[in-house]
Design a protein around this nucleic acid. Structure first.
Lengths: 155, 155
DNA sequence: TTAAATGCAAATTATTTGCAGAAGC
DNA sequence: GCTTCTGCAAATAATTTGCATTTAA
């Protein structure tokens, strides 16, 4: 867990008049003990290793809090479930490349993309307040080798 | 409907050993009589104006065919339903800006974006075979006027 | 004490699917 | 006639929610 994240969350919790519970603590620990993307279901599994009483409903109720707090980024790539990204703080220019072959999600940053997004957005009469870019692509490894090392479990 | 689209679809249908039915015809007519994005449910409504016997199941079974045929683009913006874009043929560089305030979806094309996408994708070891970019943004009108003219029904 | 949080199970909602009858080729 | 299509209704599956109970402050 990055320094400051825990403090930020607990400040947010107390500001909002919310309460500190063992289940929330476990979910927060689990959510920021990794730098991988995860789904709600995966986070439930991780959190239950810390506090077995955590329920699915509580995970689903806590995730929006962490997103609202600004420490977690919700990502919807059009799969059947959403992903959550705990690296949002380190890399706030959260662009993603998603491989349609192996389901790999690659984070990247690019200054030019950043500039270009801003230009296009303004030109169209919008403000780039909450922009995010995703690129869908195909894995070179798969094309060359017929398989690719990116593929892990179902993502 | 653009010239050639109908021919392309029926060629696809016969190649695959599929059949021409009044329901499919109605769905195809409805799907390409507009240049707007639509959901499956909206397409059902449109198709039923042409052929009232069209069922929801048939719409859901026909949409993937049209996508596979290459005449329709499926877009998932992380809303609760998918959108379908019949303009795909005219503007194959289907980039989208989605307003998080008014839900407006704006299509745009940009050569620089195109180039940049290709560069980034290759740099990361992928091929830009099926890329698409979406920018989430906030509506300037809303910010200035407290309302915006983009907002139509719920999208 | 009292408002917030929890777990459970039921509800929601877009989409998918099994099946028996209808229809294209 | 044989296979594909269709509508219907039931199934799926991620997420949400109502409610009675528990618990933090």
């Amino acid at each position: 867990m990055l320094p400051g994240v825990r403090e930020r969350i607990y400040a947010f919790i107390s500001e909002k008049g919310l309460r500190k519970t063992s289940q929330r603590d476990a979910i927060i620990e689990a959510a920021f003990n990794t730098s991988e993307h995860y789904t709600a279901e995966e986070l439930l599994t991780l959190a239950r290793k810390i506090e077995p009483t955590v329920s699915r409903a509580t995970v689903y109720r806590t995730l929006p809090l962490l997103v609202e707090c600004g420490v977690l980024k919700e990502m919807d790539f059009g799969r059947d479930h959403k992903f959550y990204d705990p690296n949002y703080n380190e890399h706030p220019t959260h662009n993603h490349l998603i491989c349609v072959d192996c389901n790999k999600i690659v984070e990247f940053e690019d200054q030019h993309m950043e500039l270009l997004e801003n230009c296009i957005t303004k030109r169209l009469g919008f403000s780039p307040a909450s922009k995010s870019v995703r690129i869908e692509a195909r894995c070179d490894e798969l094309k060359k080798l017929g398989a690719c090392t990116h593929r892990k479990a179902e993502q």
